[in-house]
Design a protein around this nucleic acid. Structure first.
Length: 974
RNA sequence: GCGGGGGUAGCCAAGCGGCCAAAGGCGACAGACUCAAGAUCUGUUCACGUUGGUGUUCGAGGGUUCAAAUCCCUUCCCCCGCACCA
């Protein structure tokens, strides 16, 4: 806290430490069940501690803390646990970089991450590394969370590699396997031959975003020799006129062992032979030559009773797929142009019969609306004349493929009449069934380069285990539950639904050699992958503090059957586990009490994986305890730039806390935008929030020392009503995770109203103190340290800690629509005078007179308001009926001018407000505000009531009820 | 390409049929306080205006409506996710 001159008068750090210690001593956040009390369990994705906790994490974890604190004050038993996710390879990768003394990484650790040489030396061990950033480092997660004052039950702290935790994961996977939801399979992945391991986009220096595409290899044969031509369009086989090989590139003849163990002799590019060897094919090179060696040879076309020649083409890319290409000139721009060039050349290439070459004609097999000339027309349209115009040809190819896929119909073969898409599947299936097709995978873009600099290939992982998220029955069941889940924000529902649509089986294992985690129970060569071991771990929190008393070796599946389902024999379990039957019952009671999870808090980017996985696993394993709500958070950037631990662009939480104070950081983070929106941390803005919080503290702290002041009925009623409204709005906001709205109402708007109250002359100390008692509790979930301190100073004697005191409700009878409407008239008046002053270019006047509207205007307003409830307001008709009134006719001219204006106002205001206006003694209202108005605007301020005479400055005609005419002395008289 | 989310005054950002020239914050300008600076408080901040008004504005174009930033259609632009990874 700083005083006016900026000198520190209050040690925020000391105050924070004091209350954090008191919370810990009083075990305020240790969640104990109480069978007759309502409960709330809220969890947030457990952090992966690969570096310091930065302010981005700070927001992620502060949001559930605020919600937890709110519900705790609501009288619920609240469990907000925390653990550490250590599964996976990045930490192991980091220790590797330390071991190898990667200069950039080591420099960052020593510098930005403030790791001592001594600590760094220990951190070559992944467990030591993780412990450093979870628990030891001042910049780490536990210190950061404690520094922000989180209401976590730290007794339940655990990690994903604890032996106790692994017993749960093993149970989970055995059970899923028994249900048929985990199954073996194989899958193509990005693979780094240099490291013999699959790699993710994260590990790449180039080719991020490349995906893997499956090609069909169609076997054209010459005797025993196979020419596997790669294609995405197997249906075009009917239009194949020849094969292309690159005449100068290297090809091999190889003995290839297929997936079923059979062997064939293939001709493929030398490069393809290398790449195929990672895709589950055994490849043994026999001979090597250039493509030219095969030019002119005839090969048999499968499914078609004909043979075609092999011709040379330089556009063939031997580093792509097999290096063997089937030519379909009628439907492939490359093929058409290459064939034309060849036929137009003076002499045929060596080995090719001129007659055979000239006889080759495009064979159309696909038509769009009866037309098969799209390829030729596209070439003409784009002015392509040579196979070297690669870019143009690529574009033409794309265009033709797309059009024919969308609208093309087959004109030949057994698929005649079918659409291209359907025909493609049918032809591929028939080729495979007859042994004329194989599969090969290729990247959609190249090159794909590992961080180490090694080029990657597509690799086929065999014996991989999959979670069967593609299973229709499972997915349908998840979808059904999804519609019962409270989602924040609500529009994430469509996102989840889309994920359920496209989510396929998920490989849930990784080679045990890389990373930490739980072994696959039935095959120790595999580790359960990190996203897959964290799907029901929230259930583990319910017992995490008690299960540690049991030797993990003595925990088997029957324990979890009992814990989750209550099946089995507790006495037998107590014997096998070496604890009392009461212990077993206590564990089960914990789970039964806390579960299901009320809120899961996580990031938007985890919807397509973790959050959906969580729903699947709960659905299969804990169908009686599925999650009730999921809140999704946006991501953060720092001063406009992406936050990245690896790039060093971070602000550690503990640094922010030291600089601004825990509560200022919390308040800033909760106010910056709503949780689900992306945010941008700005130091300057946080500093501004810090100052505003200082003012809040000084204001509340100063209240008891003020003179008593006096009650002012209208103003006090108005303030109570405003405060009641803000309390209601803040509560509602917190119910829905709208932390920003909560801060706006609970902090800023309320403060603005207090300022207005005092500006208006309000000084009722007792009222302000009673409001302050509500206010500090209202803000306690967001700024708990300052709230506790203030509560201890101004709260009722012997009150419970603020964190355990009831969250305020709007006090009964505080709401007063009429007081707010009346004060609204004063605000309107102030604005009107301000506008007039602006036009007059002045700030003060010797004399101002308010001229209230005469009584007849009130009568007219009465008539119009009555008319409003009967139907649409029409100026003409109203004028007619009003002029029928003798007493009004005297004001005919004024009425004619005024009526359209007042009707417009009646039209846009609700009846209750208008009624109030009609009942108000406005002269009394203005007179009660005279001291204020005089202080703000003029030396002398006068009011002329509705029934009084006088028209200073001849202004009175402008008056409406509730909006007096304003005469400013020194203004221009009209 | 597929899917999700956005474009609001100098900036951030609320609003999502009438009370909207549009909350709140920042920045800027002016005043009060101060020897001064900072902090704080007050006012102004689309244009015009010697009386509270008028005109134009919420990516662009069109439409529905007595009334549109808000609803519908078309169009342009930006961000995010698309998997074996935390």
């Amino acid at each position: 806290m700083r005083s006016d001159d900026g000198a520190p008068t209050l040690d925020v750090a000391q105050l924070e430490a004091k209350w954090q210690a008191r919370w810990a001593d009083a075990k305020v956040f240790e969640a104990e069940r109480k069978s007759d009390a309502p409960k709330l369990m809220i969890t947030v994705a457990w952090p992966y501690p690969s570096g310091p906790m930065h302010v981005g994490h700070g927001r992620t974890y502060t949001i559930p803390d605020v919600i937890a604190r709110f519900h705790r004050m609501e009288g619920k038993r609240v469990l907000f646990p925390m653990g550490w996710h250590l599964t996976g390879s990045p930490i192991v990768g980091a220790t590797e970089r330390i071991r190898k003394q990667d200069p950039a990484y080591v420099a960052m650790m020593r510098g930005l991450y403030a790791v001592s040489d001594q600590d760094l030396a220990r951190m070559v061990d992944p467990v030591a590394f993780a412990r450093y950033f979870t628990s030891e480092s001042p910049l780490g997660y536990r210190k950061g969370m404690q520094g922000l004052g989180y209401s976590v039950d730290w007794r339940r702290e655990c990690t994903s590699i604890d032996p106790h935790f692994s017993t749960l994961v093993r149970w989970q996977y055995r059970t899923l396997r028994a249900k048929g939801l985990v199954a073996p399979g194989s899958h193509p992945v990005k693979f780094c031959p240099a490291y013999s391991s699959s790699v993710t986009d994260h590990d790449l220096s180039e080719g991020e975003g490349a995906s893997i595409q499956e090609f069909t290899l169609i076997h054209y044969t010459a005797g025993e020799l196979h020419f596997p031509a790669a294609t995405l369009r197997p249906e075009t086989i009917f239009g194949a006129t020849n094969l292309w090989l690159h005449p100068q590139a290297e090809y091999v003849e190889a003995e290839v062992t297929l997936h079923d163990g059979s062997r064939q002799r293939w001709v493929i590019s030398a490069d393809a032979a290398y790449r195929l060897s990672f895709q589950g094919y055994g490849v043994r090179e026999l001979t090597r030559s250039t493509g030219a060696a095969y030019i002119g040879q005839m090969v048999q076309v499968p499914l078609c009773d004909r043979s075609v020649p092999i011709l040379p083409a330089t556009f063939v890319d031997v580093t792509h797929t097999s290096g063997v290409v089937a030519s379909v000139p009628a439907h492939a721009p490359f093929d058409l142009i290459a064939l034309q060039e060849l036929q137009q050349a003076g002499a045929p290439p060596a080995g090719v019969d001129a007659a055979v070459l000239q006889a080759l004609l495009p064979m159309p097999i696909v038509a769009i609306n009866g037309d098969s000339s799209l390829t030729a027309r596209t070439l003409t349209k784009m002015g392509i004349t040579s196979q070297h115009q690669r870019e143009a040809l690529d574009e033409a190819t794309h265009e033709v493929y797309k059009a024919e896929f969308a609208k093309g119909v087959m004109t030949v073969g057994f698929v005649r009449g079918q659409g291209v898409g359907a025909a493609r599947d049918a032809v591929r299936q028939k080729l495979q069934a007859s042994g004329h097709a194989s599969r090969m995978w290729e990247f959609t873009l190249k090159p794909v380069i590992h961080r180490s600099g090694a080029p990657c290939v597509v690799g086929l992982v065999k014996d991989q285990w999959f979670l069967r998220y593609g299973d229709e029955a499972w997915t349908a069941s998840v979808r059904e539950h999804l519609h019962k889940v409270s989602l924040i924000p609500a529009d994430t529902l469509t996102y989840y639904e889309n994920v359920l649509e496209w989510l396929q089986d998920w490989p849930c294992t990784r080679a045990a050699a890389v990373g930490m985690g739980t072994m696959l129970p039935w095959d120790s060569r595999w580790l359960i992958e990190s996203l897959s071991d964290s799907t029901i771990y929230m259930a583990y929190y319910t017992i995490a503090h008690r299960i540690t008393q049991v030797d993990p070796k003595r925990i088997d599946d029957s324990f979890y059957e009992y814990l989750f389902y209550g099946t089995g024999d507790a006495d037998a379990l107590s014997v096998s586990m070496g604890v009392t039957p009461r212990d077993i019952e206590a564990l089960r009671a914990e789970f039964e009490y806390w579960y299901p999870l009320d809120w899961r808090v996580s990031a938007n980017e985890l919807i397509p994986n973790h959050l959906t996985f969580m729903l699947y696993h709960h659905n299969a394993l804990l169908p009686h305890k599925q999650p009730r709500g999921i809140a999704n958070l946006g991501m953060g950037i720092l001063e406009g730039a992406k936050m990245s631990s690896s790039k060093g662009n971070i602000l550690p939480v503990s640094t922010a806390v030291t600089t601004y104070g825990a509560d200022a950081v919390r308040l800033y983070l909760m106010n910056i935008c709503e949780p689900w929106q992306d945010f941008d941390w700005r130091n300057r803005d946080c500093e501004i929030v810090r100052r505003q919080l200082d003012r809040f503290y000084a204001y509340v702290d100063g209240l008891p020392g003020r003179p008593p002041g006096r009650a002012e009925p209208h103003l006090d009623t108005w303030l109570r009503s405003r405060v009641a409204g803000h309390i209601a709005a803040t509560r509602e906001a917190l119910e829905g995770f709208s932390t920003r709205k909560a801060v706006q109402h609970g902090f800023f708007y309320l403060a603005n109203d207090l300022r207005w109250y005092e500006r208006r002359g309000g000084d009722n100390r007792e009222l302000l103190l009673s409001i302050a008692q509500l206010w500090v509790r209202l803000l306690c979930p967001i700024v708990p340290h300052l709230s506790e301190e203030l509560w201890s100073r101004i709260g009722p004697p012997a009150a419970a800690m603020c964190s355990l005191s009831p969250y305020p409700h709007p006090p009964m009878d505080w709401a007063s629509g009429s007081a707010e409407t009346l004060e609204g008239l004063v605000e309107q008046l102030v604005e009107d005078i301000g506008q007039i002053y602006k036009v007059l270019k002045r700030e003060h006047a010797p004399r101002v007179v308010l001229l209230c509207a005469p009584a007849w205007k009130r009568a007219v307003l009465r008539t119009i308001v009555d008319a409003k409830s009967k139907g649409p307001l029409e100026v003409g008709a109203l004028m007619k009926s009003l002029m029928a009134d003798q007493s009004l006719r005297a004001h005919g001219k004024d009425l004619q001018k005024w009526l359209p204006k007042i009707i417009e106002q009646v039209r846009t205001r609700d009846v209750a407000t208008l009624e109030l206006l009609l009942q108000t003694d406005e002269a009394a209202l203005w007179r009660s505000a005279l001291p204020f108005l005089q202080a703000e605007f003029a030396d002398v301020f006068e009011v002329v009531g509705p029934d009084e005479g006088g028209d200073a400055g001849n202004k009175r005609g402008a008056a409406s009820p509730g909006r007096p005419a304003i005469y400013v002395e020194g203004g221009v008289a009209t």
